[in-house]
Design a protein around this nucleic acid. Sequence first.
DNA 1: AGGCTTTGCGCAAAGGCTTGCGCAAAGCAC
DNA 2: GTGCTTTGCGCAAGCCTTTGCGCAAAGCCT
Lengths: 336, 336
Amino acid sequence: MVTMTEVAQAAGVSVSTVSHVVNGTRLVAPKTRERVVRAMRVLGYEHHPIARSLAAGSNRTIGLALTAASNPYWVELIQGIDGEATRAGLNLIIVDTRDDARHESVAIANLLAHHVEGLVIAPADGWRDLTLPLLRDRPVPYVVVDRIDPELRVDQVGVENEASTAAIVDHLISRGHRRIGLVAGIPGLSTSAERLRGYHLAHQRAGLAVDPALIVDGASTSDGGRKGTFALLDLPDPPTAVFAANNNMTIGTLAALKAAGIKVPRDLAVAAFDDFAWADLFSPGLTTVAQPSTAIGARAVQLLLRRMHDPDAPPQTVRLPAEIIHRESCGCPAKP
Amino acid sequence: MVTMTEVAQAAGVSVSTVSHVVNGTRLVAPKTRERVVRAMRVLGYEHHPIARSLAAGSNRTIGLALTAASNPYWVELIQGIDGEATRAGLNLIIVDTRDDARHESVAIANLLAHHVEGLVIAPADGWRDLTLPLLRDRPVPYVVVDRIDPELRVDQVGVENEASTAAIVDHLISRGHRRIGLVAGIPGLSTSAERLRGYHLAHQRAGLAVDPALIVDGASTSDGGRKGTFALLDLPDPPTAVFAANNNMTIGTLAALKAAGIKVPRDLAVAAFDDFAWADLFSPGLTTVAQPSTAIGARAVQLLLRRMHDPDAPPQTVRLPAEIIHRESCGCPAKP
DNA sequence: AGGCTTTGCGCAAAGGCTTGCGCAAAGCAC
DNA sequence: GTGCTTTGCGCAAGCCTTTGCGCAAAGCCT
């Protein structure tokens, strides 16, 4: 391995000069710099980030903690975060929380042990008791993505769950539906609560009462969605439309409808939160709420950078708008 | 921050003893150890992995280079890799190659600059010219996943593309199909070539000639799959069955069929490489080849560990079997 | 009791880089 | 030509651990 010392010797300067050339930390006379650069090239010098981290007390690394569950949403979020981090010259380390607060807290402890300079977290249910204390104890800045907690005074980025859910339920109501089933996510997640509020809001705006029987727990999973949907179908007075509150539950819902031999949208209208690559190919095409996942990730890093730079800035909660993609499952005619 | 030195002072021992207690590197008398442990707890000592890396000349980190394109296959692969790496006490850094050899080479240079101790790579088309030279120059061990190159004497892990493709084409032939379209992936990828060989192999075994017009380029993307499928439908003598050689192209193929108003499997049978979470819900259910993605990732790390431990071990190519999941799109009757 | 092996620890160098401080040379104004 | 300000660099301490070497104490043998 080629060290700065060797480069310095070859160039006939001191290591500090080499360091300053490498980092642009201070003025170096053009010809001196040239000699150093040449020596680096000739010797094949490569910077040693570990040593730099130790010496500079900084490692330009941020951590990302989320569930690695197979969900396209996370892929795009990671892309957004990675892209923005790279742009800022930050490295990214990803750990899997398995969407479990226990695992989450050890994963994050791990990240902290690696002295990351910032964190992006998609917290699991129960994180306030297990994970949050870890963070509160130290000066490491962090931002929360996806699961926004309005009671927390921290930087957060997510999607407009309530407004977009309300909008899509509005749409179903406007098409004449009066009994709209909701397959809701894990109660402990703020996203679930917000989407539920959106559901209520739309009813309220339309002057409709909400029948609690129409709200079933889908546990945020495909299987939960399937079971919840069956429960809806078994009601004495079943819904004429169903809204599945995330992509996994949507899969379960569709599976249940298929199994029950129900035709969409003839027998039942369907709409869902989270878009799919294949939403188009379904017959009928699925009407969905598409999140700007990549943008959410990018924004999270921007907030993190701001906080790393200015630890005392007021906490900021950013809500990005979702896009409603009208296809045919809601009962609308197909568009060319 | 609490350093070893402080712990050592508090415990009345030297830093070396603290280090040995922390790492279990040598015998420490029980009561001495006890004093040290207590001091660590009292002071809230935390290990400093960066300093350790520098001192030990090792950072227990491996790199993963693949495309972060939104493909569920990668998610599961990453899970497999991460799980196995964690088990081995290794950290994982992921970089995005964008499936482009140019980007790949800079991404990997980046990883190398971080002095990772091993690499897992899902190489992009053209990597032999751009990326491989980077690796050849240095002693860093690496293993290739997914895209196996038989001419390379390196550790590789992938799926049995040829055999499983042949098996599924066999199946289509056995159901009476004589003109089977193939929507093939990027020609530069070995997976594409192998799946193509499997297609040929099945024909050969059945004593059928392959009509080259039935093989279209789907560019491994959804859009390419759509175009390729349209090309097949436009043939004077169109196929009676289509095999799409990866998940993205399958989406394109299904979109094309939907647009053309073709009923599956009545008008055309369909089978595809890569399983989907939603393959079941399609009407008809999609018959697919499911890869053991997680297992592939885990195996890759195992090979890597072996090579890190024994750099001169003979290179090994591992092929994991795929599972064919029979649903109805191939024309088989639905199973309960 | 004297010599020899264990057992347990400390010392100090090493690892590669950053950076505050201070010195020298160059540039400038008068 | 003198004195002052820039500009350019080097010195060396410091970041926190790891680890080879060697010393001392304790235990064993005869």
